[in-house]
Structure formats: C-alpha cells, structure tokens
C-alpha cells in the first residue's frame, strides 16, 4: 500500500493503494466512478476505457502507478446530464445505445481518435474502433453519432 495522488476529471484525488492495482479498480472502487466498466480485464473489449492525457487507454490493464502524472478523464468527466459533451449529445440525438455498458469504449475511443484526426475517413474511424465491442450491436447508430460529432467538430 502506498499513498498516491491522481488527477481525475480535473480534481486531485489522493488514495491509499497497492501500486500494481489496475487503474480501473481505483476509479470504480476507491473513487466510485461509474463511467469506466469492467468488461474483460484483458484489454480486449474497451469497456474500461478512459482518457489519459487525451489518449484512450484501457484502465483494466493499466497499473495505477503508471498514470500518476496524467490527466485522467472518464466518461462522466466529459459532460453531465444537464450539459453533455458534444459527442455525448450526438449519442443522445442518435439514441445510439441499448444497455449502455460499452459506452466508455465507444465514445472515448472515437473522441480520442477524432481529436487527433478530425478529417478521418469513415473507414479510418471504423479502423480506430476495430478493437471495441458492443454486444447489443448498436453499431449503426453509434457510427451515425460519431459521424454527427465529427461533422460538428470540423
């Protein structure tokens, strides 16, 4: 156990934790955040995705000690129910989910990619999401929402 400070959703948080703990458990258990989810714990599905310094990372396989310096943003750090981020609004507009469990992977992976590649082609966006799963298969709506966000952003 050691004491550690993290910057999560713009706030400095200090926690007592085994440094080998995957970031996911720190976020969901110690900080009780609801955005990132446990899907596989193996880096295979994306449900645990958070942004670290603007990049989408999989928190289930990221030891907390490796992200000490980074600004971490979870799905709830992006926007709120009253004031959603434009990409979240695009998902609301397209009703682009069913159970919603996969959304950290879908929204944050797409956002991180489009922020870097605002003019990406549809095929490139698809490629960027090649490792993200949605088992409800809301795929068609999700791509519509991502496209809507991309068109607004550029």
């Amino acid at each position: 156990m050691s004491s550690m400070a993290l910057m999560v959703n713009g706030r400095r948080r200090t926690i007592e934790v085994d440094p080998a703990t995957p970031l996911l458990y720190v976020l969901t258990d110690d900080l009780q955040l609801r955005g990132p989810k446990f899907g596989c714990g193996l880096g295979q599905c994306g449900a645990c995705t958070v942004l670290a310094a603007g990049r989408a990372i999989r928190s289930c396989i990221t030891p907390v000690s490796t992200v000490r310096e980074a600004q971490i943003t979870t799905l709830e750090g992006l926007g709120t129910v009253e004031n959603p981020h434009p990409i979240q609004q695009a998902f609301i507009d397209e009703q682009a989910a069913q159970c919603g469990f996969c959304l950290s992977g879908v929204i944050l992976t797409a956002k991180a990619f489009l922020d870097q590649n605002p003019k990406a082609s549809d095929a490139e966006v698809q490629q960027a999401l090649s490792d993200v799963l949605c088992r409800c298969f809301a795929h068609t709506r999700m791509f519509r929402a991502i496209k809507r966000y991309q068109e607004q952003a550029v």
Binding site: Q32, R34, L75, F91, A96, A97, F101, L103, S104
Partner: peptide, 16 residues
C-alpha cells in the same frame, strides 16, 4: 429517458 445518464456515465448499474 435513461439515455442521457447512460452516455454521461451517470447511470447506476448493479456493478456500481
């Protein structure tokens, strides 16, 4: 009605 809470990571799942 649950969509805004879902996409902003506010909805409580049993996991939470």
């Amino acid at each position: 009605v649950d969509m805004p809470a879902m996409v902003t990571g506010r909805l409580e799942f049993v996991h939470n």
